[in-house]
C-alpha cells in the first residue's frame, strides 16, 4: 500500500481507479462496447489460464532435464531412481496438459502460441530422455503421438481423481460418460516449430551430458563397443549430425533472428563437444584410471553427489 492520497483541499481521497470519473454515462454505443468487452475478457482470461499452465509445465520439464543430467551412460533403461523421478514429473505434466488441451484447439492453437513456450521445454525434456535411451533423435510424428498420449493419460487421471473426490449420484455418472464418448477428448498438438526449437535446446543438454559423463567416467558417451557388427558411435558424431542437420535446413518458422540465434548456440555446443572428443583421444590413454580432469574450463552442470 502506498501513502494516503488527498485532494487539493486535504480531504481524503477514496481508493479505486479514477474517482473523478464516475461510471461514464451510457450512450448509443455503450451496448456495443459492452458486448466487445465481454468477448475480449474471454480472450484475456483464457490467455491468463494458458500462461499459468505453461509456466508450471516449463518448471516440471526443467526438473525432468535436471534428473536426466544425472544419468551417466546411454542405455535402454534409465537408472530406476531417475526413471521414477521422470515418471512422477510426467504424470504431473500430463494433468496440466489435460487442462491445457481444451484451451488451444483449432483457431486458438496459433493464437496463443507465444504463450506456449512450455511446449518447447517439454520437447527438450522428451527428446533428451529418448536420446539417453536409444541414442537417436525421436521423429516428429512419434513425439506428437507421445504428447497426445500424455494428454490422454492426464485426462484419464483427472477424471478418476475427480470421481474419487466427488460422490456423483448414480444418475449423473453414466450420463457424463455418454457425453464424453462421441467426441474424442481434445489433445495438445505440437507444431513443427515447437519440435525444431526444442531440438535446438536438446543440443545444449547433450553437450552438458557429454561433458559431465566424460569428466566423471572418463569415457565419451556413446554406444557400447560390444554392439555386434556396427561401429560404435559416440555422442560427438551425434552432435555433428545434429549440427549439419540444422545447417542444411532452410531457416524455419518464427523469426529469422530467433532461428539464427539458436543456430549459433548450437554451433558452440557442437564445438565444445568436439573439444571433448579431442581431449579424450589425445589424453585418454595416458590418464591413470580414476584420474579426474580439471573441469574448471568446461561448461558443466551444478556439482553433484555421485554414488
Amino acid at each position: 500500500m502506498s501513502g494516503v492520497k488527498r485532494d487539493w483541499s486535504g480531504k481524503l481521497k477514496r481508493d479505486g481507479p479514477k474517482p473523478a470519473h464516475p461510471a461514464p454515462a451510457r450512450n448509443a454505443f455503450t451496448p456495443m462496447f459492452e458486448r466487445l468487452r465481454d468477448e475480449l475478457d474471454e480472450h484475456h482470461d483464457r490467455r491468463e489460464r494458458i500462461v499459468k499452465l505453461s509456466r508450471d509445465i516449463t518448471a516440471l520439464s526443467k526438473k525432468i532435464i535436471f534428473s536426466l543430467q544425472r544419468v551417466r551412460k546411454i542405455e535402454p533403461q534409465l537408472p530406476k531412481n531417475i526413471q521414477d523421478e521422470v515418471d512422477a514429473r510426467l504424470a504431473e505434466i500430463a494433468k496440466l496438459l489435460a487442462a491445457l488441451a481444451p484451451e488451444i484447439q483449432g483457431l486458438n492453437r496459433y493464437r496463443y502460441s507465444r504463450s506456449l513456450m512450455c511446449l518447447e521445454e517439454l520437447v527438450e525434456a522428451l527428446t533428451f530422455a529418448h536420446y539417453l535411451k536409444t541414442q537417436t533423435l525421436i521423429r516428429y510424428e512419434d513425439l506428437c503421438a507421445t504428447v497426445e498420449d500424455l494428454t490422454r493419460q492426464g485426462i484419464a487421471a483427472v477424471a478418476t481423481s475427480s470421481e474419487d473426490q466427488v460422490m456423483t449420484d448414480a444418475a449423473d455418472g453414466p450420463k457424463q460418460a455418454d457425453a464424453t464418448k462421441p467426441d474424442p477428448p481434445a489433445t495438445v498438438s505440437l507444431t513443427q516449430d515447437d519440435y525444431l526449437y526444442g531440438i535446438f535446446d536438446l543440443t545444449g543438454e547433450m553437450m552438458r551430458f557429454a561433458t559431465t559423463t566424460l569428466a566423471l567416467t572418463g569415457v565419451l558417451a556413446g554406444s557400447e563397443s560390444s554392439t555386434s557388427g556396427d561401429e560404435p558411435r559416440t555422442i560427438l558424431q551425434d552432435m555433428h549430425d545434429l549440427g549439419s542437420f540444422f545447417e542444411m535446413l532452410p531457416v524455419g518458422g518464427g523469426s529469422r533472428f530467433q532461428w539464427e540465434k539458436k543456430l549459433e548456440v548450437t554451433r558452440q555446443s557442437v564445438q565444445k563437444v568436439e573439444r571433448l572428443g579431442y581431449d579424450w583421444i589425445i589424453r585418454g590413454s595416458e590418464k591413470p584410471k580414476g584420474w579426474v580432469p580439471d573441469l574448471s574450463a568446461l561448461d558443466q552442470g551444478p556439482p553433484e553427489e555421485d554414488e
Partner: peptide
C-alpha cells in the same frame, strides 16, 4: 544400430 537422425525426418 539406428542412425542418430532418420533421413526421412530431414526431408519431411
Amino acid at each position: 544400430m539406428a542412425p542418430m537422425i532418420d533421413p526421412a525426418l530431414f526431408e519431411q
